[in-house]
Write a protein that binds this DNA or RNA. Structure first.
Lengths: 217, 217
DNA sequence: ACCTGAACACCGTTCAAGT
DNA sequence: ACCTGAACACCGTTCAAGT
């Protein structure tokens, strides 16, 4: 009946069955109300979805960097962002539908900027480092298989399958074979992350600030 | 009338007004035919969209690496992939809707694998390098503003606007200020790309293979 | 203030019937 | 072989009318 209940049950429906599982009419049925009754509480479908995105993004703002060095803490933030997106698979679709992709990334940018500062990064160089790290996370979300949503269409062809039929003398055989194997997403992400950090974080930030901290740990 | 004409006009409609501009009924009107007439030629909406994605991906397979060193050619492939995606903004939406994200990235993977081989990369290490580079492109597509599609909802809030109200003593002032500026996407992409290549490509691949080649150029 | 019912303008798809 | 018309089961949204 209340605005809160509408948003809550709508979110629940999306979490169960993906974005397409939410229609105003099904939501009304779930609430035991006429389809038109919803419109008094929330403006319409788009407003409702925006409300949900804002809620989830707020929750995602809770990032807790861990690690002794600034570089480690940057890595931990990147990992947490990825983890949160994996925990809310529908969010990507939702954000795209609403044109909120960039806004969704904002809390992550702030958290990364904080650790980048601790790592001694400044100005344009620091900003570029933050953006590059987020791109890596975004790319993962874009190109790796997300845990299947219930109603979502099946991923038709994986790149791994496609690689099996590649015969190309210009491609190293061991490399081609590696592409046919489904990579472990966690370690693949970790490797890419560390590569980028190598390039982007000054070496000094990989060293613990004082020897006291080391002894304590 | 023909299957080809159906696919062609459907693609044209999407290129004009985005994916949501294409409905079976509007397509029928455009073809001067009853809505149900389409179903004899193409199975249905989903098959039609799949056909279009396949067509576009086929065209995208035409990647022409340029540059003297293997590293430069890897960079050029990454740039071309990004460029092609920017030229087909609807493709991202389409690929997601069909669960074809990974398959869309396949031609790029092959082209990158070829140059990675030339750069001396092999096995898992090489495969990881290819994937990391594609993630960077994918992240760009995901998080940067794409050229606005006609019917698409407006990007509500940019991260740049959001950064203007950030007051955080843990963030370097010059870094925070840099985040309020809209970055030049081309140079930002270039910087991230070079960073990742630094981390991922062996140093030997940045050197021209023979001194003869250098003299000729 | 809060909800309903009727109505409007859309969808994708099936399937018997026409030529 | 190719297309139409009627029909079905859906959408989101508006708006006058009810309590």
């Amino acid at each position: 009946m209340t605005r809160e209940r509408v948003i809550e049950t709508a979110r629940h429906m999306i979490e169960e069955g993906g974005v397409e599982a939410l229609s105003m009419r099904k939501l009304a049925a779930e609430l035991g109300v006429a389809p038109t009754g919803i419109y008094w509480h929330v403006g319409g479908r788009e407003q409702l979805l925006t409300e949900i995105v804002d809620e989830v993004v707020d929750e995602m703002a809770d990032l807790r960097p861990t690690g002794a060095t600034a570089r480690d803490r940057m890595a931990s933030v990147a990992r947490q962002i990825r983890r949160q997106v994996l925990d809310h698979p529908y969010l990507v679709e939702l954000a795209r539908e609403l044109g909120q992709g960039p806004a969704t990334a904002f809390p992550g940018q702030v958290a990364l900027a904080r650790e980048a500062t601790a790592a001694g990064l400044q100005g344009e160089e620091g900003a570029d480092a933050v953006r590059a790290l987020l791109w890596l996370v975004g790319g993962f979300v874009m190109l790796e298989r997300l845990p299947q949503q219930p109603d979502q269409p099946v991923q038709r062809t994986t790149t791994q399958e496609l690689w099996k039929s590649v015969r190309d003398t210009d491609i190293d055989a061991s490399l081609a074979k590696a592409m046919t194997r489904v990579p472990d997403p966690d370690t693949l992400f970790e490797t890419s992350l560390q590569s980028l950090l190598d390039a982007v974080v000054p070496a000094s930030a990989t060293v613990r600030k004082s020897s006291r901290a080391t002894r304590r740990g």
